[in-house]
Design a protein around this nucleic acid. Sequence first.
DNA 1: CGTGCCAGGTGCCCT
DNA 2: AGGGCACTTGGCACG
Lengths: 238, 238
Amino acid sequence: MSRHTIALESPTPERAVEILRKSILGSRTSIIVGRCIVKYRGRAESFLGEGDRVIILKPDGSLLVHKASKREPVNWNPPGSIHRVYLKEGKVIVESIRRRPRETIFIELSEVYFVGSFKLIDEECIMITGTEKDVVDIIFRSPEVIEKGFKPLYREMSTKYGKIDIFGVDEKGRAVVIEVKRRKADLSSVSQLLRYVESVRESTNSPVRGILVAPDCSASARLFLKSHNLEFRKVMFK
Amino acid sequence: MSRHTIALESPTPERAVEILRKSILGSRTSIIVGRCIVKYRGRAESFLGEGDRVIILKPDGSLLVHKASKREPVNWNPPGSIHRVYLKEGKVIVESIRRRPRETIFIELSEVYFVGSFKLIDEECIMITGTEKDVVDIIFRSPEVIEKGFKPLYREMSTKYGKIDIFGVDEKGRAVVIEVKRRKADLSSVSQLLRYVESVRESTNSPVRGILVAPDCSASARLFLKSHNLEFRKVMFK
DNA sequence: CGTGCCAGGTGCCCT
DNA sequence: AGGGCACTTGGCACG
């Protein structure tokens, strides 16, 4: 009979390795708390000197190394990586290898404070609202938030230089390219819009308007918009 | 005397709350494994139905909720958030509040499989090489990787529309704007370069060259470069 | 697969 | 605090 939870304080290295191997084989989520060094080599390269960290190995092949601060793991490997755990000179070693691109994490634990193995049952997936797609939906449902007479035609319309959030026509029949941002727009938002407008202009001689839609816009982005005769439409959602 | 590690399997809700409160007060890192629902409200909004997850509360105020898959937490709050743990109708509740922007996480645990509290000592910070800054360093040290006669002058040079990675002059004394990417360059990389070149051109009548430096470049990015008479220089580092 | 792009992006640095 | 941007960005959707 397989227990759903295994949790052990200050295990011997041998016992820790045993638990972790079973955990990996059994598609369980493993948690290690201990003192370790971490080496990474792949797209970049890193070294992390000795300190206490939380290490999580997920059954999908993700590996996380967390320090006591920050939202981000200090080291990691994404889903699909292969984990190996073994003993070397009396120390627990956790290795993670990702292929394409090849990336390796090497963790050497000088001390293991805790090791746990958990069978996590989770069929639910998160429901999010307030995303950019929701804003686009609003505009398609109520085009007047852009301006009177605006007709949205396509969403995610592909051009030579990227995909247009919303393509439509205004009251006077002019082409309108809309780039939507769910947060404050910045220089790169304007660059995007500019790329799409340029792309559409390459394929027509008719006038093409470009409108950046966002709850706010940085000062320099506004300047950049103006210098290219692009427009900004403030749209507060939520 | 305060123990550095507290780990408890299947604690009663009362005991779990007690341990977690002490953990938060004592600037320790807390780990909860249990069955829960998660509600989030802030920049966006989300709901996550009942399932088994790993919850981490860090002493800097970060909160992470991890599912059994993916590198990313399904819900979180960044450093600086305030955590509260209490009992409600016999269930353990974990709440996290961030101000500016106001964001709240509400976790209701129907079952706690494990709770742990750890004093993590960690003075080390990660050393990373192979970053963009390293590539810029290489170019300053060996400007000939760009081309014979190139002279880099400034890095991170501010313009109206953003900061130029490297500004310099070529053999013939023409201004050169360089945008560096440590990985394959895409449309947005070209847009950036274009913005900077445009910005420099606004302040001079002399010719201004723009060079995108990267290990590779997407096909459409290449087209976009060409259409604006910008150049691509392949630079493999590492 | 590569390409493009959003993300509750996060984190860093500078003004 | 706001701006600009890199990140081992991650993750997804689409051709």
